[in-house]
Design a protein around this nucleic acid. Sequence first.
RNA 1: GGCCCUAUAGCUCAAAGGUAGAGCAGCGGACUUUUAAUCCGUUGGUUGUAGGUUCGAGUCCUACUAGGGUCACCA
Length: 508
Amino acid sequence: MTWQPNKLEAKRLEKLQRLRERGIDPFPSSVRRTHTIAQAVSAFLEQEARGSAAQPIEVAVCGRLRSIRSSGKVSFAHVEDGTGKVQLFIRQDNVGEATYELFKRDLDLFDFVQADGTMMRTRTGEISVDVRALRVLAKALSPLPVVKEQEVDGKIITYGGFTDVEERYRQRYADLAVNAEVREVFRKRAQTISAVRRFLDSEGFLEVETPILQTVYGGAAARPFITHHNQLKQDLYLRISFELYLKRLLVGMYDAVYEIGRDFRNEGVSFKHNPEFTMLEFYKAYIDYNGGMELTERLVAYVAQQVHGTTRVTYNGHLIELAPPWRRITLREAIREACGIDYMAYPTAEALHAALVARNIPTRPNLPWGKYVEQLMGDFVEPTLIQPTFVLDYPRDISPFAKGVPGDPFHVQRFEFYIAGMEFGNAFTELNDPLDQEQRFLEMARLFRAGDDDETPLDEDYLRAMRYGMPPSGGVGLGVDRLVMLMTDRHSIREVLLYPHLRERDRE
RNA sequence: GGCCCUAUAGCUCAAAGGUAGAGCAGCGGACUUUUAAUCCGUUGGUUGUAGGUUCGAGUCCUACUAGGGUCACCA
């Protein structure tokens, strides 16, 4: 055992020992719970509403001790379970000297207990359990950080707490145990994902699962994680997108499919990037990117309505209205508006690069034309897009899976959408011409070979699928973690991931 | 990967190069309706790691580790 108990823990071990000496199992397997704490409280409230003549409500509630206030032969405590908190009113006269002594000597904050008794209100009006019997359900050997609360004008002020960001992530269990608002974030996360499913299911989409371990990765621009299958003696990639596998299903005659799952990208970590993150992609036959926009804005508004009861959310102090229709603007117009550059005046990579340099915009030479356009987007436009906005028609040379804009050799039918200054997703009228698609793959390979660490792999099987015919379709990808950030007003992706990636710390 | 900031008791934080402290938690005591309970007393530290400067380092310097921020990267 590598655990070196500190002084507080040593004290708790002593208490554990004392319990055992008295024949009390500090980790019993049998529990009797008649009510969740929420049920106990609401049962009492209902009875009160009916009138005082009713029978006393007997309960056995279970949970973690969150506070203890002792005054002589009477004590107060709060127990908390997954549904809420309730006060325990513990009188020596009621529980007997032995139990009372045990409570004061050998129980600690954060132990799990079972309390049997009747519901009541104390003199100050707080709903409480008048405890008749109290037993330990699980001893907490390590103390959690103590948080105290005070209610002032209906608002809860907390004192003390557990705020060290690194420790909160490394010991998420302690973070969750102590910080109720963190538990709430992950409830909202679950509600968000469940609302996404409900929406797409009701729109006739089929939820599917496609391979995470892939022999050829693709569908996005990112470096993959590489792993290895021992028996097959074969390197495999963790997927960087679902795109290519989902579109094969349109060939297979599903009209509408979606997947919610994990993508893995071997790239930098930031407040909006984690190496593994949750993605939603949905594809629907017989629509184009206009249909994709219409579905997207309805989806996000529906999610907000389900999670918040309204389509208005506050993010980082901004009031954001998610109800459709969202603003639509072409990329060209958005950039011209934001920085006065009409990139079509510089229709080659060299000219556009020179234009950036002339304006002292830090950049790099020898990138594809579209990369410079994208840079203008990121530098000047993205931070200004607070209200939900569709930005349409992207450069062809950075969009290998999108159909061209008719009569326009520079642009494709692609949109990205932005909320709160963050990119939330990316979508196209899907390219379904296998010959054009093959050319695009080759074009990509040529453009990005220089300076890129990995060659973009050409997915022959995908091209074969396309040659069987894929219906005209629209597809949308949406970053689920960012959607959760928006729903919970959290400003770092790590706050909406239960176990965000952290560097390993030295082990002894 | 570059730059900036941070790391002190279980938790939250002080300590302006001169004896490491407070609140909460803990421990002992008082208190039979408390709620940040209160009151009296009290324990608690290899100041992230390793070096260096100095009579003397939590404090200054260097490197390292981890976290945060920012930039770069991210068809």
